[in-house]
C-alpha cells in the first residue's frame, strides 16, 4: 500500500536540489545522466553545487561515530537550502544518511556537540525534506507515461528496493512488508513485475561485509539472484547504485564458481525511465555494468499509439465546430 501522506507531500514540480552522491558521480555516472535527462524531459528545475560534500554515511558505517554524519549532513543542508526547499537523491545510501542523522540528533549530547561545531561555521542544524528519486518517478508517473516513446514489451522484471529505503517508516512510499510502487511503475511502462521469495532481503553489500567478509556477501547475493531466477525474471530493477554494484558485479564470481546458472541484467530505475522517455541506449552508462544488458535492451520496443476510433466526445465537438 502506497503511503498517500508521503505522496502528497512530494512537490511535483520542485524546484529540487539534486544531491550528488559520490558513488553515482564518480563510479556510476550513467545513473546521474539518466536522472538529469528525466528531470529535463519533465521540465523540472534542479540545482547542484560544488559546496556540497559526501553525505557521510560510509564514515558512520565504518567508524560508528555519529558526529561526522550529523555535521556533514547539517553543513550540506545549509548549502542546499540556498537553492531549493526539497532534496532529491537516486541513492539509498545518501537517502538514509539524512534520515539517520535526524535520528542520531535525538541524542542530546550528539545534538549539542553538532550545534556547537556547526555554530563555529556560522550554521545550525535544521532538517530538510529528502525525497528518493524513485518516489518522484512514481509521483510523476502519469506524465512519464504520456511522454514515453518506448515500452517494456512485457519484460519480466523483479524489483529489489534495498534495505535502506525502508529504515524510516514515516519516510518513503512503501514499507518493507509488501512494497509495490516500483512494480506499479514497471506495469505502467509495459513490463510484467515478478514477485520472488527473497524480495525483502539484502543484496549482500551489508554496509561493510562486501569488503570485510566477502564470503558472507557472496552467499547472500547468491540467495537473492537464485530466488529471482527461480521466479522467471529477465531483469532486476534497483533504486540504489550500491545494490546495482553488488547484484551486478557479484554475479561474475558466482557464475565462475557455478553457484548461479545464468546472468541477469541489473538496471537502475533512472536508467529504465530515461530509456522509456527516449534517451539513447549509449547515454545511460551501461559501460559500467558487468552483466550484458542486451537481453534487456532487446525487449524495449517502440511505443505504438493505437487508433481506437474517435471517442464520442471528440466526434460530438468536431461536429459542433464543423
Amino acid at each position: 500500500m502506497v503511503n498517500e501522506k508521503w505522496l502528497e507531500k512530494i512537490p511535483a514540480d520542485g524546484p529540487f536540489y539534486l544531491f550528488q552522491g559520490c558513488f553515482i558521480n564518480h563510479n556510476y555516472p550513467g545513473i546521474e545522466a539518466a536522472t538529469r535527462f528525466i528531470l529535463d524531459v519533465l521540465g523540472t528545475k534542479y540545482f547542484v553545487s560544488e559546496d556540497q560534500s559526501c553525505c557521510g554515511l560510509p564514515e558512520f558505517g565504518a567508524l560508528a561515530t555519529p558526529l561526522i554524519l550529523t555535521c556533514l549532513v547539517g553543513r550540506n543542508i545549509d548549502v542546499m537550502r540556498r537553492y531549493a526547499s526539497y532534496v532529491l537523491t537516486p541513492c539509498n545510501g545518501c537517502y538514509s544518511a539524512f534520515h539517520t542523522s535526524t535520528f542520531l540528533m535525538k541524542d542530546h549530547d550528539v545534538a549539542a556537540k553538532t550545534e556547537e561545531i556547526l555554530g563555529k561555521l556560522g550554521k545550525n542544524y535544521s532538517p530538510m525534506m529528502v525525497i528518493h528519486f524513485a518516489d518522484f518517478i512514481y509521483k510523476r508517473l502519469e506524465d512519464i507515461v504520456v511522454k514515453s516513446v518506448k515500452v517494456l514489451g512485457g519484460l519480466r522484471m523483479a524489483v529489489h528496493y534495498g534495505c535502506h529505503y525502508f529504515v524510516f517508516e514515516e519516510e518513503g512510499l512503501d514499507s518493507r512488508e509488501n512494497p509495490s510502487f516500483a512494480e506499479e511503475i514497471i506495469r505502467r511502462l509495459g513490463g510484467t513485475p515478478v514477485n520472488y521469495t527473497a524480495k525483502d532481503e539484502c543484496c549482500g553489500f551489508g554496509m561493510i561485509q562486501q569488503v570485510v567478509h566477502k564470503n558472507m556477501a557472496y552467499a547472500i547475493t547468491e540467495e537473492k539472484i537464485n530466488s529471482i531466477l527461480d521466479a522467471g525474471a529477465e531483469a532486476i530493477l534497483v533504486i540504489c547504485p550500491y545494490c546495482l554494484n553488488v547484484l551486478d558485479r557479484n554475479q561474475k564470481v558466482l557464475r565462475d564458481i557455478e553457484l548461479i546458472e545464468k546472468a541477469i541484467p541489473v538496471i537502475h530505475i533512472s536508467q529504465l525511465v530515461a530509456l522509456i522517455l527516449g534517451a539513447d541506449t549509449d547515454k545511460v552508462g551501461f559501460e559500467t555494468h558487468s552483466v550484458d544488458v542486451k537481453p534487456f535492451l532487446d525487449r524495449i520496443e517502440e511505443r505504438k499509439v493505437e487508433f481506437k476510433g474517435w471517442s464520442s466526445a471528440e466526434v460530438a465537438s468536431s461536429q459542433k465546430g464543423g
Binding site: G61, C163, H164, F166, V167, R176, E177, D200, E201, C202, F205, G206, M207, I208, Q209, V212, H213, M216, I220
Partner: peptide
C-alpha cells in the same frame, strides 16, 4: 559484532 549487515531486516 562485526558480522551484522546493517540491513534492519531484524527490526522489521
Amino acid at each position: 559484532i562485526w558480522y551484522c549487515f546493517y540491513c534492519f531486516y531484524c527490526t522489521s
